[in-house]
Amino acid sequence: MSTGQQTEHELYRSEPAVYVYEAPVRIWHWVNALCITVLCVTGYFIGSPLPTMPGEASDHFLMGYIRFAHFAAGYVLAIGFLYRILWAFLGNHHARQLFVVPITNLNWWKGVMHEAKWYAFLTKEPHKYVGHNPLALLFMHVMLVWGTVFMIFTGFALYGEGTGMGSWQFEWFSSWIIPLFGQSQDVHTWHHLIMWVIICFIIMHVYVAIREDIMSRQSMVSTMISGWRTFKDNRAVDDED
């Protein structure tokens, strides 16, 4: 962005608040967050089970419950994801942003660089965004779209192994995903590894959301609760379409 543009922008004052996240997006976000938490915790305990329960097998169903919670959360996450895709078509243009990354737009890439510098303390001030900042969009798109797709596909492939040949889960997922990775164990390993990648993302996501809430020029955490983006200054925004 040229300096000239910036001065021009300064002439126009932004709205004090914009309605960004519609209710369906907000509900999805929090349900998704809950699902991921449940999936990570139960997933970890499927890989490394809790200490043995003494007594009769029929008195307990601990692994059964852990796995049930994992599968239930997995289904909710998958259905939620489909619903989120649907809302990308039905909702406002912010609802589409997560799915559409302007990778051919040089200015957008400059925005990515600018945000990266902001986090590296190399620039004094971040840009001001109504939607996601470019760096956030890049990360969220990779993790929440492709990461989720990967986990849904590998997850259903593993689930289909239990429901067995002839089940739709097996036919749609396991039958081709298992051989694609080599064998079942490889799918388990990848599913497990990507879980950790998502955990890393969540650490950053939560931290950055709070930090942005404090240090950037727009609201963050509250926006995902109320839907309204508020701003700390009234200079022009940088991502006006």
Binding site: Y44, G47, S48, Y119, F121, T189, H192, L193, M195, W196, V197, I199, C200, I203, M204, Y207, R211, I214, M215
Partner: peptide
């Protein structure tokens, strides 16, 4: 294995985050 690699990565990210928090606070 996946847990060792993943936990290490998460620890690195967590440590980096903590460092970033500190740096941000100082800067602010």
């Amino acid at each position: 294995n996946a847990d060792k690699v993943g936990a290490t990565a998460a620890a690195v990210v967590g440590t980096a985050t903590a460092a970033h928090i500190a740096a941000s606070a100082v800067k602010r």
